[in-house]
Write a protein that binds this DNA or RNA. Structure first.
Lengths: 198, 198
DNA sequence: GGCTTAGTTGAATAATCAATCAAGTGTCAA
DNA sequence: TTGACACTTGATTGATTATTCAACTAAGCC
């Protein structure tokens, strides 16, 4: 218990700090002062700073289901609406942070240009998991979509809309940029759902 | 001539370095070694590092027309095709950099979380200029679009697709992610252009 | 020749960075 | 009681950071 306690304390603090200030601008000292630990303890569990980052990315990977998807779509039964519930969840994050919110994975993906393969793989894996979850939603409603709809592409597109919307909303400090992006996606999906018109 | 020469040398070097390594990871020493200048020269023209960043953002703002738009759409006359020529230009940048390309503005926008207002304003201005140029393209073809089409939202959506596509293509080191995003946008625009079907 | 001024030089400074390590503490099990 | 082990302490290292500054050069003007 004791050993894992320290480890998770470090990972949780690093998760928040990397999200708030980015990886490069977060110092080991930042993590230590927030956790009230000494450097020796941190370096007992992690060979170096990059390994803390890897642990953080693994934590996001393991937490997507309980910490993002389930809270986001609550009891929503309709799979397509679940996608937009998820986007709505990001909207509340944007609003709650006064339009300061940035997707932690997206921010790290853009910050770490020449990243180590171990880091890059985990970033890609996080994106892939997100896309998989959304694709699964769309596929559950496959019968309502136009035949031949590419659900993988549509799910990637949904991620694109989320990331682009978050980026613009934060830069302009205005949720409306996010909202307009989601509205465009909604129109796009609605056109792909035209069963009754056919 | 001589004074301005040094200034632009610094701005051009910083432009490339910020694009390659980001703002935080680029040191003044990096800029000095690339320009073969001494620190005193740099601090003669710029009060501090952030002022170099501001000059870089101003350079992007002033360079969007001659350095991005005109090369991108060459002699293309059709305004809608110009938008996709622009996206095609980003595609070549992605390919030429082995899927390492990141939009300099987008990367800086995500990196600089708690940015100075002077910096944030310029980032927003750069986005706004890009969107304005694209919106102008769409508006030139207004008669071909469905009545009531929101060209501002469509142009913002185009920026979203570009940024999201670039982000995913780089993270997965695969242009196909960018291509699929553009294809989705193309389908979206085509549906908005259905004149002949009406 | 002198005066001014814009630009340059490059060593120095103080802060901060990731990382190290020898000396400790506490907890087991034999 | 002893020894092994996991973990902690915190001062320290050496590299790197942005920034400063007094001295210097060169060019233009009177």
């Amino acid at each position: 218990m004791a050993p894992k306690d320290t480890r998770t304390k470090i990972v949780e603090a690093a998760m928040e700090l990397f999200w708030q200030k980015g990886y490069g601008s977060t110092s080991i000292a930042d993590i230590l002062s927030r956790t009230q630990l000494n450097s020796g303890s941190l370096y007992h569990f992690f060979p170096g700073k990059q390994d803390v980052l890897i642990a953080v990315l693994d934590a996001y990977r393991d937490g997507i289901e309980p910490m993002l998807l389930q809270p986001a779509w609550g009891g929503e039964p309709d799979p397509v609406e679940r996608v937009f519930k998820l986007l709505g969840f990001y909207r509340t994050l944007i609003v709650e942070t006064d339009c300061t919110y940035g997707c932690p994975i997206g921010s790290l993906a853009l910050e770490l240009h020449e990243a180590d393969p171990a880091v890059r793989d985990r970033l890609a894996q996080n994106f892939a998991n997100w896309v998989d979850a959304v694709r699964f939603c769309y596929e559950q409603a496959a019968s309502r979509f136009r035949p031949g709809t590419d659900f993988q592409a549509l799910a990637e597109f949904t991620l694109t809309v989320m990331e682009g919307g978050v980026m613009q909303a934060r830069t302009h400090r205005d949720v409306a940029y996010f909202d307009r992006g989601v509205a465009q996606l909604r129109a796009h999906v609605d056109l792909l759902l035209e069963r009754e018109t056919a």
